[in-house]
Design a protein around this nucleic acid. Sequence first.
DNA 1: GATGAATGAGCCTTCATTCAT
DNA 2: AATGAATGAAGGCTCATTCAT
Lengths: 195, 195, 195, 195
Amino acid sequence: MNERSFIAELMTNKQQQILIAAESIIAREGYQGLSMQKLAEEAGVAAGTIYRYYDNKEALTAQLVERIFCQVALVILKDAEKGTVEQRFRRLWWNVVEFDARTTTNQLSYEQALHLPGANSGQHLELLLSTFQPMRQILVDGVEAGMFKDIRVEILVATSIEPAVGLARRRQQGMKFSNNELSTAYDLCWHSILK
Amino acid sequence: MNERSFIAELMTNKQQQILIAAESIIAREGYQGLSMQKLAEEAGVAAGTIYRYYDNKEALTAQLVERIFCQVALVILKDAEKGTVEQRFRRLWWNVVEFDARTTTNQLSYEQALHLPGANSGQHLELLLSTFQPMRQILVDGVEAGMFKDIRVEILVATSIEPAVGLARRRQQGMKFSNNELSTAYDLCWHSILK
Amino acid sequence: MNERSFIAELMTNKQQQILIAAESIIAREGYQGLSMQKLAEEAGVAAGTIYRYYDNKEALTAQLVERIFCQVALVILKDAEKGTVEQRFRRLWWNVVEFDARTTTNQLSYEQALHLPGANSGQHLELLLSTFQPMRQILVDGVEAGMFKDIRVEILVATSIEPAVGLARRRQQGMKFSNNELSTAYDLCWHSILK
Amino acid sequence: MNERSFIAELMTNKQQQILIAAESIIAREGYQGLSMQKLAEEAGVAAGTIYRYYDNKEALTAQLVERIFCQVALVILKDAEKGTVEQRFRRLWWNVVEFDARTTTNQLSYEQALHLPGANSGQHLELLLSTFQPMRQILVDGVEAGMFKDIRVEILVATSIEPAVGLARRRQQGMKFSNNELSTAYDLCWHSILK
DNA sequence: GATGAATGAGCCTTCATTCAT
DNA sequence: AATGAATGAAGGCTCATTCAT
C-alpha cells in the first residue's frame, strides 16, 4: 500500500471513526448524551468535520441505526447459513442468546438501536425486514422440509426466537443463567415448533 | 374533609395532571419532544409549578416510568389473579397480546417506557421485578401444582410469555394477525411449558 | 403610579430596550456586527430573553426596520402638516436636509434601514408608502391648489425632495455645506416644481 | 506572449472569475448569501484558491465594491464625454434613469454596492469621488460655459442628477413611468440648473 | 402555593481560513 | 499555483431551572 492510498483509507475511515464514536457515546450515556461537540471530541475530529460526512445529526443517527442492524444481523446469523435446518436453527438461537457476551460496553444493542429517534420510520422497518430475512428463511426452510409446524413464519419466529431475545435481554440486565438452564430453554423452543 | 387534606388532594391531582400531560407528550412526540415549557402548557400549570412536585426533569421522568410500569402491570394482570392456573395463564397471555388495542395514542407503551432515559437503572429493574411478580406467581403456582415443567421461572416466562410480547410489538408496528393465528401461537406457548 | 404598573412598564420597555440596542449596534458595526449574543449584552438582558419578544432574528430586524421608518417619518414631517403649502413644503425640505444633524451615532439612518435584509419585502414597501403618505400629500395639495405643475406626484417628489435626500446623504458622509448653498438648493427645488 | 505573462493573464482571469461569481451571488442572494465555499463553487475554483488572490473576505468585498463603482460609472458616463454640454448632460441623465434596464439579475446595482460592509470607508468615498469626476466635469463645463447657474457643483449635481437616481431606484422597486413622464422630469431637472 | 419572566449554559450548525498534498 | 479536507470560533436558538412577585 503506497502512502497515498494509506492516507485515502484513513480519510475514508474518518466516517467510520465518527460512527463508532457515536455508538460508543450512546451506549455509554444514551441518545440524550450525544452532542455533536462531544462526538467530535470522542472521534478525535473537529465539530465541523462531522458535517463533511453527514448532513446533520439526524442523518448520522439514521446511518448509525443501519450500521447496528447490519452488525447485529451478522452476529446473529454467523455460521447459520449452512448445514441442516436443525444445525442452522440451533446456531441462530444460541447466537441470539449469547449476543450480549460478544458486545462490549461500547456497543449499542439491537434493542437500544430500535429505540433511537427515527428507527421506526418505514424506511428502517423495511431495512430490518430484509436484513433479517435470512433468519426467517431458516424457519421457512424448516416448514418446507416438513419439519416445522405449517404456520405463518412470524408466529414461528415469535414462539421460538423471541424467547431467546428475552433471555439475552435479561442477561444484559445482569441476570445469570447456567448453560443447563439455557439448554432447557432451547429444547422448549425447538420442540414447540417441531411438527 | 378538612382544608389541609383538601389542599393535599389538589396537589396530588396537579401531580397526576403533570404526569399525564408528560405521558401524552412523549407518546405523541417522543421523549425529545418533552420540554418543561410544553409540559407546563399541556398540564395547564406554570413552568415553575412543576418544580414544586419534582426536583427536576429526571425525577419526573423516573416517576413517569414507574407510573407506566404499574399501569401496564394492571392491564396485563387484569382478571388474571383468580381462577385455575390455566385460566389465569390464558388471561395473562391474551392481555399481553392485546395490549396495544387497549392503549390510546396518548399512552406510552411498556416498550417505550423501558427506553426512557434512566429506565434501566437498578432501582427501576427492582421495581419491574416486584411489579410483575404476580405474573411470575402464575407460573410458580403452575409449577407447584405439578402442571408446568419444573424449571426456573425466568425460563418459563421467556418461553411462554415473551412470544406474546413479541407478537404485541409486531402488532404495534402495524403487522396484522388473525385470531386463528394468535390462537395457534397461544397453544404453542401453552404446550411448551406443560409437563 | 403604583409599584405593579411601574414594573409592568419596565417589562414592556424591555422590548424597546432590545430594539434600541439593536439599532445602536447596527449603526456602529453594520448588520454583520449584530449577533444575538452581542445584542443581549448591549441590551443588558440574557440571550434567551430576546426570544420572549421576538420569534427570531429576522422578526427583530423587521420590527427594527418599521421602527426606523416611523421615526424618520416623524422627524421628516415635523411641523409639516399645517400652514400654507409653501410653509409645509419648506418645512419638509429642510427637515430632510438637516436630518443627519438630529441623529446621533447610535441611530440608523433611513438609508441604512432601507438596506437591511428584508427591508425590500412587499410588506415593507407598503408600510413605507403609507408612512410617507403625508409627504406626498403636501405635493398633492400643491397641485390641487394650482400652485405646482400638474404632474404625477412621484415625479414631483423625485425632482424636489430627492435632491434634499442627496444633500443629507452627502452631509452624513462628511461633506459640508453653508446655509447659503443649501438655501440656493432649496430655491432650485422649489422653483422647479412651481407652475 | 511569453510564459510569464501567460500565467499572469490566467491569474488575472481567475481573479475576474472570482469577482464576477461574487457579484452574481450577492445580486442573487444578498451579501448574507456570500460564503467563501459557495463562491468557490460558483467561480469554479477551490476554496483555498480564493486566498491566493485576496487576503480575506473583506479584501475581496472591497475590490468588488471598487469594481462595481467603476462599472456603474462606465454605464452612467457612456457616450457622455463628447458633444455639447447639453448633449452630454442629457446622455448622463438618461443613462442614470435607465440604469436598471441595462443590468442583468447577475449584476449588483450601485445602491446595493454602496451598502456592502466597508463601502463607506474613507478610502471608498475618495474612489467614488474620482470615479464620478467626469460626471461632475459635465456640470463644471456647463458652469464655465455660462450655461448653468454659477453654484457649487455638488448642489447642481444634487438638484439635477439626484432626481434621476431617485427615479431609477423607484423603477428598480417596480414602479413604472411612461417616457412622457420621464421626459417631463428631465425637463424640470434641466431647466432648474440653467441660468 | 403558584406564577412566568428571566437566565445562561449548551445545543446544532455554518463558514472564513489554513495547510498538507 | 491549486486543491479541498479539516479546523474551531462563532452564530442563532432552545430549554431546564430559578426567583421575585
